[in-house]
């Protein structure tokens, strides 16, 4: 079985037409579906949040069969994710794409469950503690993109399930989760 790092690649990764944008509509729909799933799975397993179209991305080329995606193909597949709400363009030129293998809503729920499971209700945690602290080690929250985390926390705040305290400097924000409220 072919691997990319510790990611297990599906057999069709060696199928040359998989890397050529298919012109026939039905075939392309199927191809796009397979790419969307693979991108999300790969990003989730590798904890990748941002794909830059300008830089090499390991998943977008297969040296074994000497095939790689064209720029157009990359944009088509990512745009399909964007349409489904599983990704967002980070700039107007579509050069960088934020991959949401969990949607913001799902992230908010995940944080809530994490807090509940660890008995951290009414605790204050800094954003950095959530991203790289001991408590979140081994969970999906470890190494979470700061922007994604902040949006998930803000969503919780809107629902009244968390509060964000502004620190004196910009990177010193505290979050207090309170699922009881």
């Amino acid at each position: 079985m072919q691997r990319l790092g510790d990611f297990r690649l599906p057999p069709f990764f060696n199928y040359p037409p998989y890397f050529t944008l298919q012109p026939v509509r039905e075939t392309r729909e199927k191809q796009v579906q397979l790419w969307k799933d693979l991108i999300l799975d790969y990003c989730r397993s590798q904890k990748i949040y941002i794909i830059s179209l300008e830089e090499d991305f390991p998943l977008f080329s297969n040296p074994k069969i000497e095939r790689s995606l064209s720029h157009e193909a990359k944009e088509v597949f990512l745009a399909a994710l964007v349409n489904e709400g599983r990704a967002e363009w980070m700039d107007k030129g579509h050069k960088k794409c934020l991959i949401l293998w969990l949607r913001i809503q799902d992230w908010a729920n995940y944080i809530l469950n994490f807090v509940k499971d660890n008995g951290l209700e009414d605790n204050v945690m800094t954003v950095e503690e959530i991203r790289s602290g001991i408590e979140t080690r081994g969970t999906e929250l470890a190494g979470i993109d700061r922007g994604v985390l902040m949006r998930a926390l803000k969503l919780l705040e809107q629902k009244g399930k968390a509060a964000i305290f502004k620190g004196s400097s910009a990177d010193d924000e505290d979050a207090k989760e309170n699922p009881a409220l």
Partner: peptide, 24 residues
């Protein structure tokens, strides 16, 4: 389905429809 590779345009039997997206 088509493959535009180093050897130019080639055609393969269409496998894309055969693959179960739930169980790749």
């Amino acid at each position: 389905c088509r493959d535009v590779g180093p050897d130019g345009l080639r055609f393969y039997i269409n496998l894309l429809n055969e693959i179960d997206p739930q169980n790749i």
